[in-house]
């Protein structure tokens, strides 16, 4: 599932991710795209707190892709 939250200010991208995680199945991978700098702190912090796995952060031109696996 790809959640494109580019152009949305923090916490838009994190809200998109939380919404996506709630809708996803355990084991499913999600990608959230964010152009907001605050996401680099917020998103990994929440993933850790909520007990999911951050598979990677890929820097693209003007935005970052956060790849997350739902673990529970």
């Amino acid at each position: 599932m790809i959640l494109d939250a580019r152009g949305s200010f923090c916490p838009g991208p994190l809200m998109e991710l939380i919404r996506g995680i709630k809708q996803a199945k355990v084991g499913e991978e999600l990608e959230v795209w964010s152009s907001d700098q605050g996401s680099k702190k917020d998103i990994p912090f929440w993933i850790q707190k909520a007990g999911h796995q951050l598979l990677g952060v890929v820097e693209e031109q003007g935005y970052a892709r956060f790849i997350v696996k739902k673990l529970k």
């Binding site: 923090c10 916490p11 809200m15 605050g38 917020d42 912090f45």
Partner: peptide
């Protein structure tokens, strides 16, 4: 639900 009390940083 977010990383702070108010949604807009």
């Amino acid at each position: 639900p977010l990383s702070r009390v108010f949604p807009l940083e």
